[in-house]
């Protein structure tokens, strides 16, 4: 498992190659990349700032990946989440999971993202022409996480 919270960008291709080459019985790598959009709730967004809770963030991400590892037979997982100020089209987050077969990797990747969105201590603030605003948590994200407990 590799978890990183960082200001610098990441190379998703490199991370996927690492997972692919780590063992020869890897049959699937599923990855998700979250990006900064220039539009949110109908407003033009010029940049996004991500704050986090140093010390807790890494622990929370590791705990989420451990839960996924307990639930599905996956080989490895990488989570990279950026913090600081980002512009539209920049990468925010990478989750990549390897396993023998696709189903486990798909499920674990989605599970990690759903939990990250609702339990990892990150907060987004958008800058628009009219000023700045903190994003509100969405009920749909809580519902997405709750699906895994049904």
């Amino acid at each position: 498992m590799a978890v990183s919270v960082q200001t610098e960008d990441f190379d998703a291709g490199l991370e996927i190659s690492r997972l692919r080459n780590a063992r020869k019985d890897t049959g699937a790598v599923v990855s998700f990349i979250g990006l900064v959009r220039d539009l949110n709730e109908g407003d033009q967004v010029s940049q996004l700032t991500l704050e986090h809770y140093p010390g807790m963030t890494e622990k929370a991400l590791e705990a989420i990946v451990s839960q996924a590892q307990n639930r599905w037979a996956i080989f490895d997982a990488v989570v990279i989440h950026r913090v600081g100020t980002l512009q539209a089209t920049e990468q925010i987050v990478l989750v990549a999971v390897s396993s023998a077969h696709r189903r486990e990797a798909f499920k674990a990747c989605e599970f990690i993202m759903d939990y990250l969105k609702t339990e990892a201590p990150f907060w987004k603030k958008e800058r628009m022409q009219s000023g700045e605003r903190w994003l509100d948590a969405k009920n749909s994200d809580d519902e997405a996480r709750e699906r895994w407990n049904q």
Binding site: G34, M56, I92, T118, P121, F122, W134, L135, A137
Partner: peptide, 9 residues
């Protein structure tokens, strides 16, 4: 620590 509901990802 006190904080609003999280909004990462």
């Amino acid at each position: 620590a006190f904080f609003p509901p999280v909004t990462g990802g």
